[in-house]
Write a protein that binds this DNA or RNA. Structure first.
Length: 471
DNA sequence: TTTTGAGTTGTTCGA
DNA sequence: GTCGAACAACTCAAA
């Protein structure tokens, strides 16, 4: 009558969970455990928005287990010490988990695996929330990819929809005394700033499945085009669910593939476009694994000499709070602050403005996004900021600088997105919404600032700074 | 082995 | 007003 611990980490679900399934199949009793140990993820411990999500998601997982007569055992502190303590208390002979791929977590897990085995506890780890683990794909032995397109060609060719694992229907959950309460983890905001998050999201496995179903039904067929329009619900919004492992890429592939077969015809382009986005997620994981320094410093060493502007509080604060005077940037930054999420296209434009118009180091932007995004993910955040800044692997060419006014005219022609997030501008005549500074008197009346910088001049300055870099 | 062409998301300038 | 070229440098795969 053996007992196993299943250590939940970035995999807050019951279905398609190889470690959980194996533990349930091989042991008479299973103890589900979550250990709160943000210090082990330093310097990228979850930010405020992520903590909010984590609180909700742990609650959802607890309830799902409770419906089966089980309980999620909560602990906090040093992960190894807690696992050893729980192991002794439960008499567990084995610990099961799904792998994570961030450098700090790999180091921690390697250490824990060795220590547990040293003490005679079996450890079984399984692939985490990716289609392929970062070492399973390479150009040649020991040669990771640095460009997306060849990476994606190789990965796409290996993708086949496979039936995901079902959630275990076991009556074997073990309960131990001494679990912390969810409130004791102190993840919930002490001041109630999260209303906008709660109104927009339903963290947890059930919420993830519901989001996938709605995306497949409504947005998938026209995804290839609609995903670029920030005023419309054309994107999947699955990113936070994927980050916390409430749903897996395999479940998404399987579910959308079935959906596309049913809808037929034009859905194919939408499906391929979306899978490609998940391919970027895998590519980010691949890059951070093989180039672990890139979360802290530019991938392209040439940028060590880049003359970034001094990050004075006022400039950074105006960008963070959405008061730059550039409507599309401000709308995005306010959407972020309010909902914990920003539309992908607007993220690029806001990031381009910070790095190539204000000339601030991409790390300032990455840090702000880290604290405010519910889908903050170290690999994706790192890749995308470096992509926009022009210093990453397979980054945008440096001369590719977004003009926020041109972009607004192209992707938000009717200014519906601008009006939604900048209500003070709504009183202006329609033709002024995109460039309100053209009428200073009207601008002053509605209390909206004039632009911090003139994008075309700022663009020239950025290009000159880049051209002056030593080779 | 070497060469060649292509490569997520753009903007501007001059013909 | 439209259109093509220029804007860097490097990775990667195919020829």
């Amino acid at each position: 009558m053996s007992t196993a611990i299943v250590w939940f980490r970035r995999d807050l679900r019951l279905a398609d969970h190889a470690a959980l399934a194996a533990a349930c199949a091989g042991h008479a009793h299973v103890l589900p455990v979550y250990i709160h140990a943000p210090q082990e993820e330093a310097p990228w411990a979850p930010g405020a928005a992520s903590q909010w999500w984590l609180h909700q998601s742990l609650g959802a997982l607890s309830e799902a287990l409770a419906r089966q007569g089980g309980r999620l055992h909560l602990a906090a502190g040093d992960s190894l010490r807690e696992l050893e303590r729980l192991g002794a208390q439960s008499g567990a002979s084995a610990v099961y988990w799904l792998r994570c791929y961030e450098p700090a977590l790999i180091a921690r897990d390697t250490r824990i695996k060795a220590a547990l085995r040293e003490r005679g506890v079996a450890v079984h780890s399984y692939p985490g929330n990716v289609w392929l683990e970062p070492w399973q794909i390479s150009r040649a032995p020991g040669q990771p990819y640095r460009m997306f397109s060849p990476f994606w060609r190789k990965l796409r060719a290996q993708l086949t929809p496979q039936q995901p694992l079902r959630a275990p229907h076991a009556r074997l959950w073990m309960k131990l005394p001494g679990s912390l309460s969810l409130a004791a983890l102190a993840l919930a905001p002490r001041i109630p700033w999260a209303a906008g998050l709660a109104g927009n999201w339903r963290p947890g496995e059930a919420g993830a499945r519901e989001r996938l179903r709605r995306f497949g039904e409504q947005a998938l067929p026209d995804y290839a085009v609609d995903r670029d329009r920030p005023a419309d619900p054309g994107t999947s919004r699955l990113s936070p669910h994927l980050h916390f492992g409430e749903i897996t890429p395999r479940q998404v592939l399987y579910g959308l593939h079935k959906r596309a077969e049913r809808l037929g015809g034009g859905t194919h382009a939408g499906l391929e476009a979306y899978l490609r986005e998940l391919g970027w997620r895998e590519f980010a994981c691949h890059l951070l694994y093989h180039f672990p320094h890139t979360s802290e410093g530019s991938f392209n060493p040439r940028f060590a000499a880049f003359p970034w502007a001094e990050p004075d509080e006022r400039t950074l604060g105006r960008w963070q709070s959405g008061c730059t005077g550039v409507p599309l940037v401000d709308a995005g930054m306010r959407e972020l602050w309010s909902t914990g999420w920003m539309h992908n296209r607007v993220r690029m434009i806001a990031a381009s403005f910070l790095t190539k118009n204000l000339l601030l180091h991409w790390q300032h932007g990455a840090r702000w996004f880290w604290d405010t995004l519910v889908d903050a993910d170290l690999a994706s955040n790192t890749l995308n900021w470096q992509w926009v800044a022009g210093c990453g692997a397979d980054a945008a060419p440096y001369f590719r600088v977004f003009n926020p006014f041109t972009q607004a005219a192209r992707f938000d022609a009717e200014a519906r997105y601008l009006k939604r997030w900048l209500p003070e501008l709504a009183v202006l005549p329609a033709k002024l919404l995109h460039e309100p500074w053209r009428d200073p008197a009207a601008l002053a009346r509605c209390g909206y600032p004039s632009p911090m910088v003139e994008p075309r001049a700022a663009r020239r300055a950025a290009l000159e700074a880049f051209a002056a870099l030593p080779d």
